[in-house]
Simulated assay, not measured.
Amino acid sequence: MAQPAITPAPLAPPPVAKLPARAVLPWAAFFGLLMLVLLYFVGAEQGALSVFSGENVHEWVHDGRHLLGFPCH
């Protein structure tokens, strides 16, 4: 059996960049609020809880509503 003349050095793990919580928290709050607004429009924007009159929002999110399991008919 032939052995290599030079043995490869073990690879060092890549440096891990740590983000401070103060930098992440505002973005997490923003995206959390955005997700709640989107969930409202997909799940509850019709009938008595409607913010906009008419069926326009309902028609725009109709397929997403069925995909997520919300009843609408």
Rank of each mutant, 00 (worst) to 15 (best):
V42Y: 00
L68R: 03
M35T: 09
F31Y: 13
E45N: 06
L11S: 15
M1P: 08
R65D: 01
G69E: 05
P14R: 07
E55P: 00
R22Q: 10
F52C: 11
P14S: 10
A2K: 10
V51K: 04
A23S: 09
H62I: 08
W27F: 11
M1A: 12
F31T: 04
Q46K: 12
I6S: 08
V51N: 04
G32Q: 03
L34R: 12
G43F: 01
A44W: 15
A2F: 11
H62D: 01
C72D: 07
R65A: 01
V57C: 05
T7P: 06
L49E: 09
V16G: 00
L39D: 15
R65C: 00
P26G: 04
L19V: 12
A5F: 15
G47L: 08
K18Y: 10
H66T: 01
A21F: 07
L67D: 02
P14A: 12
L33W: 13
A29V: 15
V51A: 09
G54S: 07
G64N: 07
L38C: 15
A44K: 12
P71N: 06
W27V: 02
G43Q: 04
D63C: 03
P10V: 13
A44S: 10
H66V: 01
L49C: 12
M35A: 14
L49I: 08
T7I: 13
W60T: 14
E55C: 08
E59V: 14
H58E: 12
A5R: 11
L19W: 10
G64D: 05
L39Y: 13
A48N: 12
L19G: 04
P15H: 02
A28E: 06
W27I: 03
L19H: 06
A17L: 07
G69D: 04
H58G: 14
E55F: 10
L68I: 08
G47W: 11
P14N: 07
L68K: 01
Y40T: 03
I6E: 15
G43H: 02
A12E: 07
H73A: 05
A17M: 05
T7M: 11
A9Y: 09
H62L: 11
L67V: 09
L36A: 14
P15S: 03
E45G: 04
H58M: 15
F70A: 01
P13S: 14
P15E: 04
V42P: 00
A28M: 06
G69T: 05
H73I: 07
F30W: 07
S53P: 02
E59K: 05
L25T: 06
F70V: 02
L19N: 06
S53T: 15
L36Y: 09
